Computed example of a mutant assay.
Amino acid sequence: MKNAVIYIHGKSGNTEEANYYKKFFSDEYDIIGFAYKSELPWDTKEEFPKFFDFIAPQYGKIFLIANSIGAYYAMLSLADKPIEKAMFISPIVDMEKLILNMMAWSNVTEEELHKEKVIKTSFGETLSWEYLSYVRNHPMNWHIPTNILYAENDNLTSLETITDFAHKLGANLTVMNNGEHWFHTEEEMAFLDNWFKAFL
């Protein structure tokens, strides 16, 4: 029986990105890009497990690669699934803190967001009271063996936040100096390749 690697992209990403990771795996593995539709955490709680439960019986071991908010969605919805190992690239590990930071960047108070319900920011994100409330009421409970790749200049998650998360989880944390949230430059991808080979 073959094994599977499920790839979950981040915001504005796509399933084609999964092909990049084929070079790390033998022919015994199928690399599957998950074309999810959900943009809200409560939707992922339905869509992600349904997809996993469809895929899992066809394979022996299941590995997970997830990027940015894709990692957050995975941790929120797949924590009780039989995943052998997870490889997270620039994961969002504290969504509440990220939302509060975006509110601060936009000078929006909790009272204002509660009253308005939805507020559009100048940098293209939409703040939602329902989203913030959901995140607070549904903390993650992730215990799957995980390796994390983080960039020093990640503008969405602080080094302190990711370090604290990795410590609590017992995850391996690798930090790339001068890297940014979106790994895409030649230097960043070379670093990612070396990290992947070391921890796979």
Score class of each variant (00 low, 15 high):
178 N>Q: 14
191 F>P: 00
194 N>A: 13
183 F>G: 02
189 M>E: 13
153 N>R: 13
154 D>F: 05
190 A>H: 11
175 V>K: 01
190 A>C: 06
159 L>R: 12
181 H>D: 03
159 L>G: 02
194 N>H: 11
157 T>W: 05
160 E>N: 11
180 E>A: 06
171 A>T: 08
182 W>G: 01
169 L>F: 04
182 W>V: 09
164 D>E: 15
190 A>P: 00
161 T>A: 13
176 M>T: 00
176 M>D: 01
187 E>A: 12
157 T>Y: 10
152 E>P: 00
167 H>T: 15
175 V>L: 03
182 W>K: 07
192 L>Q: 11
152 E>W: 01
169 L>W: 05
154 D>P: 05
159 L>Q: 14
194 N>K: 15
160 E>M: 10
172 N>P: 01
157 T>Q: 13
194 N>L: 10
154 D>K: 10
177 N>Q: 14
176 M>A: 04
173 L>R: 10
186 E>G: 03
185 T>W: 03
170 G>Q: 10
174 T>Y: 04
192 L>D: 00
168 K>Q: 15
166 A>G: 08
168 K>D: 09
177 N>M: 07
166 A>Q: 07
193 D>P: 00
171 A>L: 07
156 L>I: 05
162 I>F: 05
191 F>T: 05
185 T>E: 02
180 E>K: 13
152 E>D: 13
161 T>Y: 10
183 F>I: 12
161 T>K: 08
160 E>V: 11
152 E>T: 00
160 E>P: 05
188 E>I: 01
161 T>M: 10
165 F>S: 03
156 L>T: 07
156 L>F: 13
174 T>P: 01
190 A>W: 04
181 H>W: 02
189 M>R: 15
182 W>R: 09
166 A>Y: 01
168 K>Y: 00
177 N>D: 11
182 W>A: 04
159 L>H: 09
182 W>I: 06
